[in-house]
């Protein structure tokens, strides 16, 4: 820096510049501290997540000809208690039927589970403020979001009940889907066997997700 001694204009410019920078920096520091604080708070609230890998999904189709139902108790459910965001994922092949042939047809002909191995729901709990996941009690709410079945994404809306007790959250919801909406074609021969209004029930007991 010694050569700068002789260049007084540069010296004063640098001084000014540095002072400016310092001022800016102090302002920035303030903002940064604030931002960091916000982020840390956000991450703390992020830590309040609940999950299960053994969520239960049941579907039921009833017609004059026959009733068809299947169960899957290997669904993954994750709930962010802070934001109300909720995600559910399940393997189609994990649905179990009473009749093996139905299960085969379900996978082979209708759900094409080799092509679409998973169904996923991503959504959020509405009026999250009305639900206190940190206080024991029963809460009714709605959940809305996008469901992905057989390559098709649709928006759905459903009522949901939360039972909070001892740090665990039990959830219970049901809604209906029409296979037609999800590009699932049913041949005329069995048209009367499969309902257009298939009832889906999702139940889970969520535990706190620990890092």
């Amino acid at each position: 820096m010694s050569f700068l001694h002789n260049v007084s204009w540069f010296n004063s410019w640098l001084k000014n510049e540095l002072q400016n920078q310092a001022q800016k920096y102090y302002k920035m520091k303030k903002t940064a501290t604030l931002l960091a604080l916000v982020l840390i708070t956000a991450s703390v609230s992020c830590a309040q997540k609940y999950f299960t890998r053994s969520g239960y999904i049941h579907f039921f189709s009833t017609t004059n000809v026959e009733d068809i139902s299947a169960d899957n108790n290997k669904a993954t459910v994750v709930l962010d208690a802070g934001t109300g965001a909720v995600e559910i994922s399940c393997l189609i092949k994990a649905f179990e039927f009473e009749k093996a042939l139905m299960q085969e047809h379900f996978n082979e002909n209708y759900m094409e589970s080799d092509t679409y191995p998973k169904s996923v729901f991503k959504g959020k709990v509405e009026n999250i403020k009305a639900v206190n996941f940190f206080r024991d009690g029963t809460y009714s709410s709605q959940v809305s979001g996008e469901i992905f079945i057989h390559g098709v994404t649709k928006t759905i809306f459903a009522n949901v009940t939360f039972v909070v007790s001892g740090g665990k959250i039990e959830t219970n919801t049901n809604f209906s889907v029409n296979p037609k909406d999800y590009n699932i074609t049913i041949p005329d021969l069995v048209k009367n066997n499969i309902s257009e209004n298939i009832r889906i029930t999702v139940k889970s007991t969520l535990e706190e997700l620990k890092k």
Binding site: L39, S43, A47, K49, F51, A85
Partner: peptide, 29 residues
């Protein structure tokens, strides 16, 4: 803290927080 935040940004990927248990996928039919 930024990277931590990014990791737990659940609006996008809550499911990725839960490590998936890899299943055995049998070739059927």
């Amino acid at each position: 803290s930024v990277s931590f935040y990014a990791q737990t940004d659940d609006e996008k990927d809550l499911l990725s927080l839960v490590e998936e248990e890899e299943a055995v996928n049998y070739a059927t039919s």
